[in-house]
């Protein structure tokens, strides 16, 4: 008797066959795969251009087999704007962390959204600066300890964490704004749905789209991957509720 082997799981064409530099338990690798799957499912690998700026996001170009820019810290929405305005036929997305999107690049983020730029932002919010070794982020929670808030973040000293999804949802140019997470299989499936929707909004010329992805960073949170998943559930989601804030 002959064994029939059926392929039930394979690497997306857009995902390069390489190991990522991400730490064990990190959410980045999951999101990279979701983006690759969405690109494959839409069949747009040959007309998609990505922009990954400074932070743990930056090496995305090593994992996605598409044309990509590596941009300056915070400037990805401006770079994506330049690309998209020259080639409106391309599908252009940015892949940005919280330091990038919610701190140094807020001007570019807000104005790309306000202009209704036909680009998509995948915003990884892990409440910490990962690549530089665990400093406080604009999205670091009150009380959260980081290397630059060693006694825990206080509102008096460092102000309040920014909810980018809520902020951008107020802008007329922003068409699709959602917050998802990748801390459980169910959430991962929902996250993929949101990313897919965001790309389709861009392809339908409906304006700016952004998906905020709550992501775990066990290394810089000084936790095990299992503890990190729990921390997303118990600490992050109450402050950053998962929902679609705006859809066309």
């Amino acid at each position: 008797m002959q064994m029939q082997l059926q392929k039930v799981f394979e690497r997306p064409r857009t995902l390069r066959p390489v190991a990522t530099h991400y730490c064990p338990g990190c959410g980045h690798g999951i999101v990279a795969r979701l983006i690759a799957e969405v690109i494959d499912e839409f069949g747009i690998r040959e007309k998609t251009v990505g922009v990954a700026p400074v932070g743990c996001s930056v090496l995305l170009y090593n994992y996605l087999d598409i044309d990509m820019y590596e941009a300056a810290h915070g400037r990805a929405p401006a770079v994506a704007t330049g690309c998209k305005r020259v080639h409106p036929d391309l599908v252009v997305f940015t892949y940005q962390g919280d330091g990038d999107f919610a701190s140094i690049g807020t001007a570019e983020a807000v104005h790309a959204a306000a202009r209704g730029e036909r680009i998509t932002t995948i915003f990884i919010n892990n409440a910490i600066y990962g690549m530089t070794g665990g400093q406080m982020a604009p999205t670091t929670l009150i009380g959260q300890k980081t290397t630059t808030s060693p006694y825990g973040r206080t509102a008096e000293q460092a102000g309040f964490p920014i909810r980018m999804a809520e902020l951008l949802a107020t802008l007329d140019g922003a068409s699709f704004i959602a917050r998802v997470s990748v801390h459980s299989p169910k959430n991962i499936i929902q996250a993929k749905g949101a990313i897919k929707k965001a790309f389709s909004v861009q392809m339908n010329q409906q304006g700016y789209s952004m998906v905020e992805v709550l992501s775990q960073c066990p290394t810089d949170w000084r936790m095990s991957p299992a503890e990190a998943v729990k921390w997303v559930e118990e600490k992050m989601i109450p402050y950053y509720p998962l929902k679609t804030l705006k859809a066309p």
Partner: peptide, 26 residues
């Protein structure tokens, strides 16, 4: 063609980066 008023010079030069990266004369 495209004229775009950026939100700042910082954004303008990065839009130039994006547009030049596609090979256009910018």
């Amino acid at each position: 063609g495209v004229y775009l008023q950026a939100e700042s010079e910082v954004a303008a030069i990065n839009m130039l980066f994006g547009a030049a990266g596609t090979g256009a004369r910018v």
